[in-house]
């Protein structure tokens, strides 16, 4: 399990994440919520050691991350990055690169790697466009390819940085279902989301960030009861109980006053 203890991190002397203690337990989907600039993505990067911790520490199964090399980290935690240049390679090749942390010299992928990549593609439904260039796929198809890559990395923890951005609603729901499935298999999933209702519906735990600090950590219900979402986002957040279950609706604060 990945655990952050009093972690502060940032870029070039500017502290973005301040004194956050948090863990990502196996079998649960932890969603990071918070306004723009509240430090969600920075927290993910610091958890992966992509930016160094200013203060505090990151532990992987009790081992401080600075004692691990990059490959060891990459075998323990994978990231679906938010910023990705157009990949001008075939989908199956991209998925195969999920095996990169396991390569030893001369860096040739083995038959086992190919099998793992193939299975990952079958699972996310990316097999249909295995031979196509990733840059020519639609948003949903691309996401399934990158998810397969994440799966091929075979890590205990998966981090997803705004994975639903640019996806239509069906693909968003598909993605959330898929993440939920991963957690069901005993993995830890941590994701940055901007869609509050989606987060409330699918998260096991929500970590609410405000100005770099952890403002709340708990179940969606507890978060709703706390009223923190309304104060942090400056919106009105309403719960409805309908035939299909509990629904949440966001609306601007002004309208309701």
């Amino acid at each position: 399990m990945i655990e952050l203890k009093n972690l502060s991190a940032g870029y070039g002397g500017k502290t973005v994440v301040k004194d956050v203690s948090l863990c990502f337990p196996a079998g649960q989907v932890t969603v990071l919520l918070g306004p723009n600039g509240s430090g969600k993505s920075t927290l993910l990067k610091a958890s992966l050691g992509l930016i160094p911790a200013g203060k505090g520490q990151v532990f992987y199964d009790g081992i401080p991350i600075e004692r691990m090399n990059r490959r060891q980290v990459a075998k323990a935690a994978a990231l679906l990055a938010q910023n990705r240049p157009e990949a001008e390679i075939e989908a199956e090749r991209l998925v195969l690169h999920g095996r990169f942390p396991y390569l030893s010299y001369p860096r040739q992928y083995t038959e086992t790697d190919r099998q793992i990549a193939k299975q990952a593609m079958e699972r996310t439904g990316a097999s249909a466009y295995a031979g196509q260039l990733v840059s020519r796929l639609s948003g949903g198809q691309k996401q399934s390819v990158y998810l397969a890559m994440l799966l091929a990395q075979q890590t205990q923890t998966v981090f997803l940085d705004e994975p639903t951005a640019f996806l239509d609603i069906r693909h968003q729901l598909e993605l959330m279902g898929w993440v939920k499935q991963l957690a069901g298999e005993g993995r830890a999933a941590a994701m940055v989301l901007h869609d509050l209702p989606l987060a409330m519906e699918y998260a096991d735990r929500i970590a609410l960030m405000e100005a770099g600090r952890l403002a709340f950590l708990g179940t969606p219900e507890a978060l709703y009861e706390s009223g923190k979402l309304e104060s942090v986002f400056g919106i009105r957040f309403t719960r409805f109980v309908g035939e299909a279950g509990v629904h949440y609706v966001c609306s601007p604060k002004e309208e309701t006053q």
Binding site: L50, A74, N83, R84, E88, H97, G98, P101
Partner: peptide, 21 residues
Amino acid sequence: LMASPLEILSLGDETAASLGL
């Protein structure tokens, strides 16, 4: 000989770093 890390780098800094590069 560095074709493989170069190809990983082409996937973007964050992805490359998260793959252990």
